[in-house]
Amino acid sequence: MCGKRKGGCEVLEIENLTVSAEGEEILKDISLDIPGGQIHILLGPNGSGKTTLLRTIMGLGNLRVEKGRIIFKGQDITHMPVDQRARLGIGIAMQKAPVIPELTLGELTNMMGEKHGGTRNASQYSQQLNCDYLQNRPFNENFSGGEMKRGELLQLLIQDPSLILVDEPESGVDLDNISVVGEALRNLLKARREVEKERSGLVITHTGNIMDYLNADRGYVMLKGRILCSGNPRDLFEEVEKHGYEGCKECQKILQKQ
C-alpha cells in the first residue's frame, strides 16, 4: 500500500497538522513525509513539541487534532484509536513508559507474542536484549533507564511494526547501555529494512548519540511546535551543537520570515 505522493511509497504522511491539548496549541501546521525504509530524526529543545508529535501519530493522550491529516500507508488514521493504529503497524518506544505493577515483563511479552502472531520468538529477543533477568519483575518497577529502554525495544521486536516511533532512546541510559540500546535499535530497524525496504522510523534525540547507530536519512528541527528546517541529520545536528537551537541560521531565517 502506497501513499499518494510521487516518488514511491510513503509510509507516513503528515499534512498541515495542528494539535492542541487542554485548549492550547502545541503543534502548528506540521508537515512531513517518511518514505518506506527511511529513518528520520527529530531535533529540538524541551517543550518544542517533539514528544507530542510522536504521541499524536500513535494516537495517545488527550490530544486534539485541530487541523490536518495523518496518513499511514495510504490510510487516514487521524482519528483512529491507538490500538487500531498499533495493529496497523505503528509501534512506539516511549521515553518513559509507565510502571505496571500488575504485570511482569514476561507476562506482557507473552501476551504480545500471542497477539502479534504467536510465532515471534520472545525468548530469543529477550536474550538478545539481555532482558531475561527482568522477566519475572513487575513491569518497569525499579527498572533502570537502560532496562526500561530495553523493555520497550523488546516489545517492538515482538510487535514487529512497519513504522517505529522512538522517543529519546538514549535518555537516562548509561554509556554501557547506550551501545546495547543503539545496537538493538539498529537491528530492529535493519531487520526488515534490508529485505523488504519497508520498516521506517521517526526518532527523537537530544544528544545525537543514537545517530552513531542509525543511518538516518533526514532530520528536522522543531521549535515552538513547528518544524522549522530539515535536511541531512548530521549537518543539522552539528549546526545545533555549534549554535544552539535558537542560533540555527536556517531556522532563524524562517522564524524571521514569519
Binding site: 495493529r87 512506539i92 509507565p98 500488575e102 506482557l108 510487535q159
Partner: peptide, 21 residues
C-alpha cells in the same frame, strides 16, 4: 493506554491489568 499502544483492545488491556492484580 500503554497496552493499547501495543495493539491490545481496551477490554483486553483492562482485563490483563485486573488479572495481574
Amino acid at each position: 493506554e500503554y497496552l493499547m499502544s501495543r495493539g491490545f483492545t481496551e477490554e483486553e488491556s483492562v482485563a490483563a491489568i485486573l488479572q495481574g492484580f
